[in-house]
Amino acid sequence: MKKLQQAADTKANRELQSEAIIRLSGVGKWYGQFQVLRDIDLAVRKGERIVVCGPSGSGKSTMIRCINRLEEHQQGKIVVDGIELNSNIRNIDEIRKEVGMVFQHFNLFPHLTILQNCTLAPIWVRHMRKSDAEKVAMHYLERVKIPEQANKYPGQLSGGQQQRVAIARALCMNPKIMLFDEPTSALDPEMVKEVLDTMVSLAEEGMTMLCVTHEMGFARQVADRVIFMDAGQIVETNSPEQFFNNPRHDRSKLFLKQLLH
């Protein structure tokens, strides 16, 4: 029975691999002697929404930072949108153009206005005309519901507003994939909702999303799959319903128990 299940899993995995927009195979990474990622296999389909959770230090952030080469992997293979990530700078640039990222601490550029934050990359990377870039930026600022803040500086906005700007800034590059690295962890509780609402609406439009988050409500609502990591490994991959109601692994059970307390 177990063998049959395994065979089915492998077949499903193979099908997934063929249409995957992100593919990690046997990825490993070390900080000095310490191994942070161990043999990570993951395939993400176009339009799929994946939530990555796990205890701190489990390698979740490192894994998604490897996908746009903010961290370098030392073993295995990462292919994003058909391009392999290696030391070829042209490949890295191509991938970064197509992969948007939202950070825990927003990382907006404090010396630029909100509008300039949003137009910087379209102008300098996509070589758009300033007026066109501004049109695109205003479109996305309207989508995250803060067009009226366009001429302010990041320091004048609340945390929630800053994070929504960060999402708009990433969307201005018209990415195929969005990575979220604990986007709500640095926010006051009352600001979490406004950011999550933005992410939910993005998910509903079919964006391929990989979110490191502990917002389990969000995971239930939008995730196609939940990935649980521990000690640099993917311990469990499951549907949100199965993961929350009937986790397979003891480590996931313990994590969920601690999260609910």
């Binding site: 910087l120 990359a121 590059m173």
Partner: peptide, 20 residues
Amino acid sequence: GQIDAGKALGLGPFKIFRLV
């Protein structure tokens, strides 16, 4: 984080230095 944000947006090292 500022440099990470610049990289994630696809800016090269010289542009990150100059613009960010």
